[in-house]
Design a protein around this nucleic acid. Structure first.
Lengths: 213, 213
DNA sequence: CGCGCGATACCCAATTCGAGGTACGCGGTA
DNA sequence: TACCGCGTACCTCGAATTGGGTATCGCGCG
């Protein structure tokens, strides 16, 4: 084995995902790489922050959808303490908004779970080298919608209520604003998402990861 | 090794999932079990059917959401040719409707991807022994909604159109029926799903796996 | 054979939604 | 400073949605 060839010089990796079998797969793949070593695992964002503090990995593989604390929050938390932390987002594709938020939170890479082993290993080495690793199709999706209008925070709040079945009047009560204002927000939402009605607006927002179910 | 202890008597397993790393994890876990052997892998439903024909596994682990051919269709296809096929559904929880359809298609087990390695191995042995393996929480969810009304095929068609932003009039045109009929369907949908409006009906249907995005 | 259920269709009434327009205060930016 | 985007609020109006009723047809089930 080439394990003894470069002791202590391997890329130290932290894997964060709530699926044990997926972590197992990552562990198995990394174990086969002579230049990598898995130094920690975590099943949610909270544990990820703890694990990062204690293990100080070179590269962190981070799922986005997790219980306790989601990936974006975990990335933000880690990057605020360790601004040089190199993090690769690992996820089943759920829209450009998620990807964008993760990258804005400080992720250096984005990897779909459908990626091949080699692609993951390449991404790890790329990110470890200080470069970023974002698949062209993701970059394209982001570019498309960054050009378009992003929803404001307030608009997203409104849309979240609407997704739960609230009528404009109910949204108005929950957000402590006038129903007329809700209508204005809805109008802007429909324009920005190019939706014909509130229902389609919700499905579009869901598919882009702007809101969650 | 115990490999030579019981040659040819191991549980022969087929793993079907479009995530390479997850398959890798399953492979690694199975490799550690003395009474199991992975005899094939597939990345979608179509390949799964082919792989089943050629390898005749004792137990098949099958993801539900895959490109080319989804898990439910693959289970149906396999079970129609091999009625005794033992199949465990492996998925991130996406609603009781999905689970129910998989079980109706002939699955013997249901396993969340967040399951621990031991849980998966236990499920494989249970299903191999001819028993079924369904987590209590899934069984409960199914029971809850089986008691409630299930949407009819036509109602699901209508709801799918609505989710895409179609107004009643447009749904009527697409389905070649009167707008009045669409209204009746919508009324029944709202009743059955206990939704206050069409938007909530869509989000509820999405969360239960009745329709997809 | 009758019964219920699903799908079809129509009528009516009340409410909600979506699309116009106008307006003002508050930040940030050209 | 002037402009722009955001959030707020109001007005009107036509279209869409929702809830109620009635009725026909076909199909499966007891």
């Amino acid at each position: 084995m080439s394990e003894s060839a470069a002791p202590g010089k391997r890329i130290r990796i932290l894997a964060v995902d709530d699926h044990p079998m997926l972590r197992e797969g990552i562990a198995a793949a990394i174990a086969r790489q002579p230049d990598m070593v898995l130094v920690g695992e975590a099943v949610n964002g909270r544990e990820a922050v703890e694990a990062f503090r204690s293990t100080r990995p070179d590269v962190t593989l981070m799922d986005l959808q997790m219980p306790e604390m989601n990936g974006v929050a975990a990335i933000s938390a880690i990057r605020s303490d360790f601004p040089t932390a190199r993090i690769i987002v690992l996820t089943t594709y759920k829209g450009d908004a998620q990807a964008l938020r993760a990258l804005q939170a400080g992720a250096s890479g984005y990897l779909l779970k459908s990626a091949l082993r080699k692609e993951m290993m390449d991404a790890i080495r790329t990110v470890f080298a200080g470069r970023s690793s974002i698949p062209p199709e993701i970059a394209l999706q982001i570019a498309e919608h960054v050009a378009a209008d992003a929803l404001s925070e307030r608009e997203i709040e409104v849309l979240r209520c609407v997704a739960r079945g609230a009528a404009n009047k109910e949204v108005a009560i929950r957000l402590q604003i006038s129903e007329e204002t809700v209508k204005v927000h809805m109008k802007h939402i429909l324009e920005k998402l190019a939706a014909t009605d509130r229902t389609q607006a919700v499905t579009i927002a869901l598919s882009r990861g702007i809101i969650e179910l």
